[in-house]
């Protein structure tokens, strides 16, 4: 089975600072991979580069056989770490906009999730609380029938009850032909969701293993092992 995401020799520098240093990575379809590392390790930079928001200095990225461009963007669903939508729009208008631009957007599913989380679709985005805004953005990202989901801190500002709903949603929408990359600090909450983990440090891949192998080898949970590896 050919890989969904193949990265070779990816390097990104900001002046003298090297954010990504010769990254090599492959991810097969049907995996939920945790992208983990301390702040500044390059997680967000890596994700943005795959999305096409940053131009790398060198290296290649291939998403389901496509380089970064229109075809790759069609099959990537990105959840950014910040709010990236026009505040003044109502949620209904935003959903319509997503459907307008993305063919694979599942409107029914979006409304179902919005009602399950009791979010008023007539509200304007800017009137929502921070946590609700994050939930909405996550729902929008998960309503796409994409091949590669890149979720940057999907449950960061969300309350624990909603977190469980979100994690269950991600699990329920599991599609063996798609893959999800979750970049997060809240490892213990999301551990059970992941089957692979990537540890980044100083812009390099330190480790890329199935999570159960890590538990087996080190006799610890992913969260504990992470703390050990990145101890200050």
């Amino acid at each position: 089975m050919s890989n969904l995401l193949t990265i070779q020799g990816l390097t990104k520098k900001y002046g003298s600072n090297t954010a990504l240093n010769n990254i090599n990575l492959s991810i097969a379809p049907g995996h939920i991979t945790g992208l983990l590392g301390p702040n500044g390790s390059g997680k967000t930079t890596l994700i943005k580069t795959i999305c096409g928001l940053l131009v790398p200095n060198s290296g290649t990225i291939s998403v389901d056989g496509n380089p970064v461009g229109i075809e790759s963007k069609k099959i990537i669903s990105y959840l950014p770490d910040c709010t990236c939508l026009d505040d003044s729009m109502t949620i209904t208008a935003i959903v319509k906009t997503f459907k307008y631009f993305f063919e694979d957007f599942d409107t029914e599913r979006a409304y179902e999730m919005l009602s399950n989380l009791s979010i008023d679709t007539k509200a304007r985005f800017k009137t929502l609380s921070k946590g609700t805004k994050e939930k909405v953005q996550l729902i929008l990202a998960m309503s796409r029938r994409a091949k590669l989901y890149l979720l940057d801190e999907p449950i960061g500002g969300v309350d624990p009850a909603a977190r469980e709903y979100i994690i269950n949603t991600i699990m329920n929408n599991y599609d063996p032909s798609a893959s999800i990359i979750i970049s997060t600090h809240l490892i213990s909450d999301v551990e059970q969701l992941m089957d692979d983990a990537i540890f980044l440090q100083n812009g390099q891949v330190k480790l890329h293993k199935p999570v159960d192998d890590i538990r087996d080898e080190y006799g610890k949970s992913l969260d504990e092992y992470f703390r050990e590896v990145y101890r200050c």
């Binding site: 049907g30 939920i32 699990m171 063996p176 059970q192 969701l193 992941m194």
Partner: peptide, 17 residues
């Protein structure tokens, strides 16, 4: 596999294994 994974609250690949 999927139903069991959802019931158990784990990744389907883990359940598969």
């Amino acid at each position: 596999v999927r139903d069991l994974a959802v019931e158990a609250g784990v990744n389907p690949n883990t359940m598969q294994r």
